[in-house]
Each structure stands twice: as C-alpha cells, then as structure tokens.
C-alpha cells in the first residue's frame, strides 16, 4: 500500500507545471524515504531530478518500493482538476496498474477522486556524481526567469560568466547583443531578494536558452534559485519545493565544435 497526503496540494500542481514541458512521461520511485523522479528530456540534453521527502507529507505510507510510470500530460490534466487550496492524496495498491488522486477541499465538503492508468517505462537512471562546484550563484527566481526571457530575444544561447566581480549573462544574435550583470547584494531587507555568489574559481559556460526557459517554469515553487557551475560539466539549476524537497535540472553545456 502506498499513500501520500499533502495538505499544501498546490506544491504538487506546481511540480507538474515545472516538468511537463520538458518530459512527456516519467517514473515516480516511491520508497519509505519519499518519492523521487529522475528523467532525461527526449533529446538527452537535460536531466530532471525531483525529490519529495516522506517527512514533508502530512501522511506518508509506503509498505513496498513502488515504481509508478506516468504519462505526465495525463497527470497534469488530473492535477488541474484540483483547486489550489485542495489537499492532495496519491494512493496505490502494491503491484497496482493504477494510481488514485484524491482532492479534498479545505472544508472537506467536496471530495473528488481520479484514477489514472500507470505505464511500464523502461527508463535509464543516470548516476550523478557528488561535485564541489566552482561557482554557486543564488538569486531571486523571478530575476533569473526574467534574464532568461529577455536574453532569449537575442540568440539561442546564453553565456553565463561568473567571476569575483559578479555574474554576467550574455546573448548575441542577428539583432545585436545583450548583457546583464548582477553583483552580489550588499544588504537586503528580505533574504529571498539577495544575490549571493560563492566562487572558488571563475567559470564561463554556454547554455541553450530553450532549456533554461523550460527550467524557469519552476519559478512559482520558490523565491530563490541556485545555479551551480564548474568548467566543462552540466549546470545545475535548483529550486526548493516548499520545505518538502527540491527539483534539480542538469543542463549539458554547449561546447566548442
């Protein structure tokens, strides 16, 4: 028996919004410790990893490890039927070929349930090595979304250059060039408005706008985002999911041909 109840059901709705453009289908691995999802986009350029800790749920039970393969378009359609303030419960029997989503209004006066077929997905899992990144940039998630959107007008790629002076995002194309520089904030009223740069060595890498823009669909999940970079390895874009977990996007850099 698997059962996970989340009073703050809107978080699950936001997680789906954050992955459904990038992934058509994916497996949710349910275990005693919580729920995880790892999947590559169709082109194998990026990898998404979602981690939801068991303690983050208001009720969590997972008697046997369970892999629930889902069509994410279908899952998203079902979650759209939940109101933002609904309590969401996911339920499945051991070895079941369906999962049930239960939505309860806060007053408990409306209860809906939707059953969805599970899929058998043969997906590769990749081992992500523990990495000490040369640069870790924390910035407001809305600011990052704005930067990616604005620079996408100029070209297909964004160059992210992190140095002790700050971080510079650049794009170049037919209409011209754009540069956005952010310095570390000296003092802020709210922690979530801060730009914090931890740098061991300067790093400059180039990434596809299309993917960065898809990652920013996670913006409603968290007021802050962190970007981790080291030379010649994938960028990690990480958002926390309330206090129940996090979503990480890994994006392979563009390299010299």
């Amino acid at each position: 028996m698997f059962e996970a109840r989340l009073v703050q059901g809107s978080l699950l709705k936001k997680v789906l919004d954050a992955i459904k453009e990038l992934l058509n289908e994916a497996s949710w691995d349910c275990a005693d410790s919580g729920i995880q999802l790892q999947a590559m986009d169709n082109s194998h350029v990026s990898l998404v990893s979602v981690n939801l800790r068991a303690e983050g749920f208001d009720k969590y039970r997972c008697d046997r490890n369970l892999i629930m393969g889902m069509d994410l378009t279908s899952m998203s359609k079902i979650l759209k039927c939940a109101a933002n303030d609904d309590i969401i419960t996911m339920k499945a029997q051991d070895n079941a070929d369906t999962v049930t989503f239960i939505f309860e209004s806060p007053s408990q006066e409306k209860v809906s349930d939707y059953e969805m077929k599970l899929m058998n997905l043969d997906q590769d899992h990749l081992g992500i090595p523990e990495t000490d990144y040369a640069c870790v940039i924390k910035l407001p998630s809305g600011e990052f979304a704005r930067i990616c959107r604005d620079l996408s007008n100029f070209g297909e790629s964004i160059v992210i250059a992190c140095s002790k002076e700050g971080v510079k995002f650049s794009a170049a194309g037919d209409i011209g060039t754009g540069n956005i520089k952010l310095a570390q904030t000296s003092s802020v009223d709210k922690e979530e408005e801060a730009v914090i740069i931890e740098m061991q060595e300067p790093v400059t890498l180039t990434f596809a706008c299309r993917y960065l823009n898809m990652f920013t669909k996670a913006t409603p999940l968290s007021p802050q985002v962190s970007l981790s970079m080291s030379p010649d390895v994938p960028l990690v874009v990480e958002y926390s999911i309330g206090d129940i977990g996090q979503i990480q996007y890994f994006l392979a850099p563009k390299i010299d041909d």
């Binding site: 350029v45 990898l47 990749l126 081992g127 994938p234 392979a252 563009k254 390299i255």
Partner: peptide, 14 residues
C-alpha cells in the same frame, strides 16, 4: 561555433 553536448556524455548509466 559551439554545439550542444548531451547529458549522457557527463553522467553514466546506473
């Protein structure tokens, strides 16, 4: 000119 690399170039299959 830069070309897009694949994530599988960096992370191996488990």
């Amino acid at each position: 000119k830069k070309k897009q690399s694949n994530i599988t170039n960096f992370f191996s299959k488990k």
